[in-house]
């Protein structure tokens, strides 16, 4: 054991930073290799069969595809450190600029949906756990798990379509698509948040049920505290760890889920641009976008681990 307190945080920081670096390297390398893994000639595919041979060659030279692989890799890394992501094949605009323009819209959507799903899921999960613990409230449990399974099975883009139909086409309450006022956020955020909220509330309930059987909850009851205090002060913090772990996964999958929802709502974010650039075979833009998504997911995962370590000091000591 030695000095668990003194050596805990530096070691945790070192280990976590190491993992982040390795993962970052994987993302960077994967996005570099992506263009080389495409079967056939990627530039020819991008420009179409009718493009003149010298134009294809010029593009290849510009993308550095004629150099040896290691040289291309070194150049790619060098440019990356300067924040340089190359230029789009189709629009000729710098990729970095396009991403910078579109990233905020995507991030807003993901963060808003995450906050909403947590805000909804935690109270529902805790409430259902209290109502249904130890085989009580069978009907409530059946209703909860039933709706939960169904709601969680509806993919976010389909929810989006349904919401558009109900609240935009039928009743004109909210705009159908686009990003304008605050009301234009409502439907995309709802479409993104409902599924994760269902999953998360189920996790919260299961965790709470497990925690409420723990010995220390019996200790809390032996202190004759009010049920509210036992549930919220003694049980909930112990259920948060697992909730947060899942929540972190949800947040990173929300970031990816924006791709579909953005396409339903014509949202001017990264998600709609990645799809159009994949279809158009605009590889530099795809590469940059994949890189941004990957790095975003890694940063979220790291952030979740740090928050977890602060909330539950044991997780900083244990295995990663």
């Amino acid at each position: 054991m030695g000095h668990p307190l003194k050596s805990r945080w530096p070691r945790f920081a070192l280990r976590r930073a190491g993992r982040l670096l390795v993962s970052l390297w994987v993302v960077v390398t994967a996005s570099f290799l992506m263009i080389h893994l495409v079967p056939g000639d990627p530039v020819r595919a991008a420009l179409g069969p009718t493009a003149p041979a010298d134009l294809v060659l010029a593009h290849k030279e510009e993308l550095g595809l004629l150099d040896p692989l290691w040289q291309q890799y070194a150049a790619f890394l060098g440019r990356l450190f300067q924040g340089e992501l190359g230029a789009s094949i189709s629009t000729r605009l710098p990729v970095g600029e396009t991403i910078a323009q579109r990233l905020p819209a995507t991030a807003e959507l993901a963060v808003a949906a995450f906050l909403l799903s947590v805000a909804v899921a935690v109270p529902i999960g805790v409430g259902m756990a209290v109502i249904t613990r130890r085989g009580r409230g069978r009907r409530a449990e059946l209703a909860f798990t039933g709706t939960n399974v169904v709601v969680a099975a509806i993919p976010d883009f389909l929810l989006g379509v349904g919401l558009v139909y109900l609240l935009a086409v039928q009743t004109n309450v909210f705009p159908v698509a686009g990003r304008a006022g605050l009301d234009s956020y409502v439907l995309p955020v709802l479409a993104l948040a409902i599924g994760p909220a269902a999953v998360l509330s189920r996790i919260v309930r299961v965790e709470m049920l497990a925690v409420m059987e723990a010995d220390y909850i019996r200790t809390a009851r032996a202190k004759r505290l009010t049920p509210a205090r036992v549930h919220l002060v003694h049980a909930l913090p112990n259920a948060v760890t697992a909730t947060l772990t899942i929540g972190g996964l949800l947040l990173s999958s929300l970031v990816a889920g924006t791709v579909l929802v953005e396409n339903v709502f014509a949202w001017p974010g990264l998600g709609s641009s990645i799809v159009s650039s994949i279809v158009a075979k605009d590889y530099p833009l795809v590469q940059g976008t994949v890189l941004v998504y990957g790095v975003g997911v890694l940063l979220i995962n790291t952030l979740v681990d740090v928050v977890l370590a602060l909330l539950d000091p044991r997780s900083a000591i244990g295995e990663s």
């Binding site: 495409v38 996964l249 990173s252 990816a256 995962n301």
Partner: peptide, 24 residues
């Protein structure tokens, strides 16, 4: 450990990555 790194990425992101490689 490679698998552990990959698991951290949401499925849809991996799908898009591979969709680029394998084409539409």
């Amino acid at each position: 450990s490679a698998v552990n790194v990959l698991v951290a990425f949401p499925g849809l992101l991996l799908v898009l990555f591979f969709a680029v490689i394998f084409g539409v």
